[in-house]
Write a protein that binds this DNA or RNA. Structure first.
Length: 243
DNA sequence: TATAATGTTTGAAC
DNA sequence: AGTTCAAACATTAT
């Protein structure tokens, strides 16, 4: 359930718990759960795929990895990782990686690299890309220090829209194409969020897990690509390979 | 029902 | 000592 936009949606869903005190904790998380008792949530924040629950002096970082999930005011038949009970309602995490972060969140995260953040800085992303000339674009898009929050779906959809072959070298892309990639990554991430809210995300996939190219009507290629070894879907006809 | 998948960290092996 | 790689984790739609 990861990728940045899904975490932004989670923030929206739990917003009513802001300012609430935790009255009980449960679950198999090995963190010092007692520390959370009677603590008031100051804010829910996020950085890429990191979901952050901020308290005075520390924060709780929740990462959903590949299979993590959450339920609000509900439980399911799976081992509970961490359950937070508020005076009115509860927030339950399953199969997530959870840790404390000490001190103020500011300074520990560079929010200008988060594609969903108001402080997102496309120029910085572009500059970082230019420092990675040899990197394949399929890897570069998944680089959290450059595009925090981008996952495999966003990668595939952005490359399809920009018509860039996943095995292209960053350094081989014309400057204008590189800019387009950065712009499209931000744009698609917000479309992802909107479609996710509507429950129509998968309906709008153009490339990810698709079999045929909507532009060419040809079969899409599906291959594990890059050093990150994640699957890419691309059309050998309309995705341009820059090398 | 077997498989693949919206992901990252860790520690062994080169 | 730097780099690569498999393992581990853990769930569910297709």
């Amino acid at each position: 359930m990861p990728e940045g936009p899904s975490i932004v949606q989670l923030k929206e869903i739990v917003a009513p718990f802001t300012g609430r005190k935790i009255t009980a904790m449960a679950g198999n998380s090995t963190i010092d759960q007692g520390r959370l008792l009677n603590k008031k949530v100051l804010a829910f924040r996020s950085w890429g795929k990191h979901f952050l629950i901020c308290f005075k002096g520390f924060s709780l970082k929740v990462h959903f990895l590949l299979f993590g999930s959450y339920l609000v005011n509900a439980t399911k038949d799976r081992p509970l990782r961490l359950g937070l009970t508020f005076s009115k309602g509860s927030l339950n995490f399953y199969a997530a990686a959870i840790k404390f972060i000490e001190g103020d969140i500011e300074g520990q995260y560079d929010f200008t690299s988060d594609v969903m953040n108001d402080d997102w800085n496309p120029k910085k992303a572009l500059a970082k890309l230019k420092e990675n000339q040899q990197t394949l674009v399929c890897d570069a898009l998944l680089e959290q220090e450059i595009f925090s929050g981008v996952g495999n779906i966003i990668k595939n959809e952005v490359l399809y829209r920009a018509r860039v072959h996943p095995l292209s070298r960053v350094g081989a892309l014309p400057a204008i194409k590189l800019k387009e990639l950065v712009r499209e990554t931000r744009k698609y991430s917000f479309e992802f969020l909107e479609w996710k809210r509507q429950g129509l995300l998968t309906k709008h996939w153009l490339a990810h897990r698709k079999k045929t190219c909507l532009r060419c009507d040809l079969l899409l290629s599906s291959a594990i690509t890059g050093t990150k070894k994640r699957r890419s879907f691309f059309c050998n006809n309309c995705h341009q390979l820059y090398e």
